[in-house]
């Protein structure tokens, strides 16, 4: 087992949770990052594009603020360039097809007791675990 800063993880998670509650309570929106990102490009309405862009900008600024206050967090890529880019394509394609990702289905959908989100979350978790197993522990 690796070393885990449980307190930081719980507080970081709670911040994500409160961000989702704010978005829902004030704007009636689900904090699903993949859908919000997609809407910036796929939505026709300027209003829709604007709030979505504002949220995404907030995420980047929030990460910046962390770096400013506590130093650059470690970020080490886990794939070579080509697999990384193909993975990006799959993440985009899959989240659009499945209408959500870790935040929309995992954090918000589960909180709404959605069976669809539960199926989605369990499926992508298990598939990702199998993927890592194949890449790390099976030599090819």
């Amino acid at each position: 087992m690796a070393d885990v800063n449980i307190t930081a993880a719980l507080i970081g998670g709670a911040m994500i949770g409160f961000a989702s509650v704010i978005l829902l309570a004030f704007h009636g929106r689900i904090a699903g990052v993949s859908g919000i990102l997609d809407g910036i490009f796929s939505h026709r309405s300027k209003r829709e594009k604007l709030w979505r862009f504002t949220f995404v900008l907030g995420i980047v600024v929030g990460a910046h603020l962390y770096t400013f206050l506590r130093g650059t967090p470690p970020m080490q890529l886990q794939a070579e360039r080509i697999p990384l880019l193909l993975a990006g394509l799959l993440v985009g394609f899959g989240t659009k097809l499945g209408s959500g990702c870790t935040s929309g289905h995992g954090v918000c959908g589960l909180a709404r007791r959605s069976k669809r989100s539960l199926v989605e979350t369990l499926t992508f978790m298990i598939v990702a675990m199998i993927t890592v197993y194949l890449r790390r522990h099976i030599s090819y």
Binding site: A8, A9, I11, G12, G13, A14, M15, I16, F18, A19, S20, I22, A31, V33, F55, G58, I59, V60, V61, G62, A63, H64, L65, Y66, T67, R70, P73, S103
Partner: peptide, 9 residues
């Protein structure tokens, strides 16, 4: 909050 939380976590 979301971005900061992700970094902290």
């Amino acid at each position: 909050l979301f971005g900061f939380g992700l970094s902290l976590g």
